[in-house]
């Protein structure tokens, strides 16, 4: 907030997006940027200090930390994208139906959501993974299941609010079908609050992926993933803290960048709360009336 007041909103947004784009590009072009194979075990080089050959040193199996970080960006960001995109798609469909149709259908869908929301999300994720088994596919599936509930409630709140706008009534009078009203009026007006929330939620998803991988329920070794790397490095916390610090700093930077971007995009106070923190749907900042 302070930053955007000092430097101007546009500038802050462009700086943040540039940084995030750089990190994403680093992930995409990891095969060209990484100096070594991230999974190449070379015990003769184990726990090397940073040098020209290994800019961030090597881990306990002699694998290049920088290469693993770069490949880890790929894993983390693509899983995050997959999870968030699926959640938005599911939530747009269910949330719009619940919000627009209302009545009994809305009630049933929302009580199901309430049931899922009544469990702490991380504990629920751990429980579900322990039922369905360990692995990144299961983790993605579980996170989509839990996350989409938050998104559904959020979108339902927005749609219920939009539905009462006069332009929806006017569109009905003009003879537009519910489907056309959805496409022409409701979804376009959902997008700006949705983009803000998605940006804020990406940070949380990255944290979830890393946390689940850290406790060994998500991405499995030897796949390079930041949370899994912290897990592997934790035995060397005192002797070689860089093994933890390197992925830790990456997580911190990416999450912070996304959160700052979300807050800057949100602008007004009250619109930038994460949907997890406040279980009530934020409805301010709707582009409805003047």
């Amino acid at each position: 907030m302070l930053m955007s007041r000092l430097l101007g909103k546009q500038l802050v947004i462009s700086v943040l997006t540039t940084l995030l784009a750089l990190i994403t590009l680093a992930g995409i072009f990891a095969p060209f940027l990484a100096p070594h194979d991230p999974n190449l075990v070379d015990l003769s080089h184990k726990l090397n200090s940073p040098s020209l050959e290994f800019p961030l040193g090597t881990d306990q199996l002699g694998r290049c930390v920088l290469s693993r970080l770069l490949y880890g960006t790929r894993v983390t960001l693509s899983l995050t994208l997959l999870i968030v995109a699926s959640c938005v798609a599911i939530a747009l469909i269910i949330g719009s139906i619940a919000g627009y149709v209302g009545g009994l259908i809305d009630n049933i869908l929302m009580r199901v959501c309430d049931t899922i929301l009544s469990f702490p999300s991380f504990i629920l994720a751990i429980c579900l993974i322990s039922i369905w088994g360990v692995g990144w596919q299961q983790m993605v599936f579980v996170l989509i299941t839990i996350q989409s509930v938050y998104y559904t409630r959020f979108i339902r709140g927005l749609v219920t609010n939009l539905r009462q706008q006069n332009y929806i009534l006017a569109a009905k009078v003009c003879g537009s079908s519910p489907f056309l009203i959805m496409i022409r009026h409701i979804i376009p007006n959902l997008l700006s609050p949705l983009v803000i929330v998605v940006t804020l939620e990406i940070g949380w998803v990255i944290m979830d992926i890393s946390a689940l991988s850290f406790i060994g329920l998500g991405v499995q070794s030897p796949t390079p993933e930041w949370g899994a790397m912290i897990n592997e490095g934790k035995s060397f916390l005192l002797s070689h803290p860089r093994l933890l610090l390197a992925p830790g700093i990456m997580i911190f930077c990416v999450v912070a960048l996304f959160n700052l971007l979300g807050e800057t995009l949100g602008g007004k106070k009250g619109t930038t709360k994460s949907i997890r923190k406040s279980k009530k749907e934020p409805v301010e900042g709707l582009g409805g009336t003047q």
Partner: peptide
């Protein structure tokens, strides 16, 4: 088609994202 409306609050009666042309076109397209 033969029954239309004009609301009191002119700002909330139009989709803020549509241009004047799109607003007037809507009934025509339907």
């Amino acid at each position: 088609r033969d029954l239309q409306v004009v609301f009191q609050d002119c700002y909330s009666a139009v989709n803020p994202r549509m241009t004047v042309k799109q607003i007037i076109e809507e009934p025509l397209r339907n």
